[in-house]
Design a protein around this nucleic acid. Structure first.
Length: 202
DNA sequence: CTCTCGATGTTCT
DNA sequence: GAACATCGAGAGG
C-alpha cells in the first residue's frame, strides 16, 4: 500500500491539540468517504480555524446551543451545519471537551472516486471540490454526519498522510466572516497549500 | 476575467 | 424577521 492509499484514521489525540496547530497539520491529510461501495478520497488543501467563544466569527461565540453543542464536545468529531438554505459545511472539532473550537474544511483535491464525485456534483459542474459546500456535495456529506466520530475509520474519516513542509504552507485571513469583529476578521487563521489549484481562492 | 444578484431553510432575536 | 463560515448564472469588459 502506498502512502496515498493509507486508510489509518488520525486518532483523537491528533485533534485534541491547539486548533491552529491541528489546522496547519491537517494540510495534506486525506479525507475518506465510503459511499455506495465506492471509496472517495481527497487531499485536504485549505482549512480555517474557529476558536472559542471569544472568536466572534465562530458560531460558538453565541454560546452553547443545540446547534453549537457538538463544538463543545470531544475532539475528532464532525460539526456539519447548513447555511444559506442549501449548503452544508464540514468542520472537525478540536481541543479538550468543554472548549468549543473546530476547523472548517474549505477545499480538497480529489485523489480517488472522481467519477462518483462528478455524479454527486452534477456532471456539468466545473468546480468539483474547491469550496466548502462543493466538497460536501462531491463527497455526500450532509447533516447525518453532524456529531460523527471521525477517528474510527468508518464511513467518513481523515486518514494519515506524510507531513507537508512549512515552505508549502500559506496563511491568511478567513473568508466570508464580514459579520465578525475587525480583530477576528484580521486573524491569520486560514491555511492552504501554496499553488494548489483546488484552493477556493487565490 | 470581473461583478452583481437570487436561491432557500435553519437558527436565533 | 434578519442573518447566514456559499454557489452558480448572467451581464459586462
Amino acid at each position: 500500500m502506498t502512502a496515498s492509499e493509507n486508510r489509518t484514521p488520525l486518532p483523537k489525540n491528533f485533534f485534541n491539540r491547539p486548533t491552529l496547530t491541528v489546522a496547519r497539520d491537517l494540510l495534506g491529510k486525506t479525507l475518506v468517504r465510503r459511499w455506495r461501495g465506492v471509496e472517495l478520497r481527497a487531499k485536504i488543501v485549505e482549512v480555517e480555524a474557529y476558536i472559542g467563544q471569544a472568536d466572534t466569527a465562530c458560531h460558538c461565540s453565541k454560546g452553547r446551543t443545540r446547534r453549537t453543542e457538538v463544538m463543545f464536545g470531544a475532539a475528532g468529531h464532525a460539526y456539519v451545519y447548513f447555511v444559506y438554505g442549501m449548503h452544508y459545511m464540514l468542520n472537525i472539532v478540536t481541543e479538550a471537551t468543554g472548549f468549543p473550537a473546530a476547523i472548517l474544511i474549505r477545499a480538497v483535491e480529489p485523489l480517488a472516486g472522481q467519477e462518483a464525485m462528478a455524479a454527486l456534483r452534477g456532471n456539468s459542474a466545473r468546480n468539483l471540490t474547491n469550496g466548502p459546500a462543493r466538497l460536501c456535495q462531491a463527497m455526500a456529506i450532509d447533516k447525518q454526519f453532524n456529531g460523527w466520530n471521525l477517528t474510527t475509520g468508518d464511513t467518513l474519516w481523515v486518514a494519515d498522510a506524510p507531513a507537508v513542509p512549512d515552505a508549502a504552507v500559506a496563511r491568511g485571513t478567513r473568508i466570508g466572516i464580514g459579520y465578525a469583529a475587525p480583530a477576528d476578521q484580521n486573524a491569520l487563521w486560514r491555511f492552504w497549500l501554496k499553488d494548489n489549484p483546488f484552493v477556493s481562492r487565490k
